[in-house]
Amino acid sequence: MTTTQSLLDLSDFAWQRLRDRLGGLTDEEYFWEPFDGCWTVRATDDGFVADWDRIPPEPPPFTTLAWRVAHIVDVLQAERTATWFGQEPAADDGTPPVPGSVADAIDALDHAYAVWRRRLAALTQDDLDRPMGAIAGPYAEDNGADFALHILDELIHHGAEVGTVRDFYHGTHPDNRFTGKLTPGERPALLAEAAAARHWELIPELADQGFDLNAKTTSGRTAAHLAAGTGNLEILRFLVERGADLSITDGQFQADVLGWAKWFQQTEAIKYLETL
């Protein structure tokens, strides 16, 4: 395997983890400011801008999800992720935007990652080994691999911050995903989400309402995977009796439901599934 491929694999892994963590994000959460003085994204007459100071306070302000997402977009799509590698930006690469909504943020992130990945994939071993030169300013003596690893570090650690802020938000707000009158058309993966949140008591009710037994969470797990992996034999039996597809593979291990029971060493679930 080449060094470039190893970098691509790490990049794709970090990207998919971030992308999965954004599932179900709302505009309210996107702009949530848990403290006074947060840096965020603000509306102006000319669109949205992110708070910034060339010499940030110490310690720097807490930043909202909107700010963090805008920063990741900027890091990945910036002109320097082409020019510092000796490339020219493509005509349709565009300028990194400052997204003012979740929908715009997802579109911007997808585009920014596609731009970054294409630039990274084009690197040869010579590109990675060669000092970047004057265009990189104070980093002129650093080579392409140093810079690629820096961008990946930005993606990884800011992606982790996004996940932490989301955990913080959900830890301080009631879990209302499963309240109200939702229909399968409005929230098709709700049954899988209930299993992921360990709201097992809701599974029969949601099944009766017509929610898809085989729907997956954003990380690619069905309710049957989760029941088998946690050893919840009662719910696993219920899902099987209702016709759940046990051959579906998940997005993490590419394993079917029996594979999950085996991976997590759920003896009773294994015995039950092997009798089917």
Score class of each variant (00 low, 15 high):
Ala227Gly: 06
Ile270Ala: 13
Thr81Lys: 02
Arg68His: 07
Thr2Asn: 15
Val115Ile: 03
Thr2Phe: 09
Leu123Ser: 03
Pro99Tyr: 13
Ala196Asn: 11
Asn176Lys: 10
Phe62Cys: 10
Ala66Pro: 01
Asn232Leu: 08
Ile270Tyr: 13
Glu58Gln: 15
Gly133Lys: 01
Ala121Lys: 12
Ala261Lys: 10
Glu268Asn: 14
Lys216His: 13
Ala194Phe: 05
Leu273Trp: 12
Ala195His: 06
Val165Cys: 05
Glu141Val: 12
Ala269Leu: 12
Phe62His: 09
Ala215Asn: 05
Ala269His: 09
Ala207His: 06
Asp12His: 14
Glu154Val: 05
Pro204Val: 00
Gln16Leu: 13
Ile151Met: 14
Asp110Phe: 09
Gly133Ile: 11
His173Lys: 02
Phe31Gly: 08
Trp263Gly: 11
Arg237Gly: 08
Gln87Met: 08
Pro174Lys: 07
Glu28Ser: 13
Gln209Pro: 00
Pro34Arg: 01
Gly220Cys: 08
Leu276Pro: 03
Thr64Pro: 02
Asp20Met: 07
Asn232Gly: 07
Thr81Leu: 01
Leu76Tyr: 06
Ile151Lys: 10
Glu193Ala: 12
His71Gln: 10
Pro96Ala: 13
Gly159Cys: 10
Thr275Val: 07
Leu239Ala: 08
Val257Ser: 00
Val49Leu: 14
Ile151His: 12
Ala195Asp: 02
Glu161Pro: 02
Ala196Phe: 15
Leu246Tyr: 10
Asp92Ala: 10
Pro184Arg: 08
Arg68Val: 14
Leu8Phe: 02
Thr44Met: 10
Pro184Glu: 08
Leu206His: 03
Gly144Arg: 12
Glu33Arg: 15
Glu205Met: 04
Ala114Phe: 01
Asn232Ser: 07
Thr124Glu: 04
Glu205Ile: 06
Lys181Trp: 09
Phe178Lys: 01
Gly243Ala: 07
Gly251Ile: 12
Gly171Asn: 04
Asp250Pro: 01
Ala121Leu: 04
Arg198His: 15
Leu10Gly: 12
Ala215Phe: 11
Ala207Met: 04
Glu274Cys: 11
Gly133Phe: 06
Gly23Glu: 11
Val69Asn: 06
Leu202Lys: 02
Asp74Met: 13
Glu29Phe: 06
Ala140Asn: 02
Phe178Ser: 04
Val115Met: 00
Ala148Glu: 03
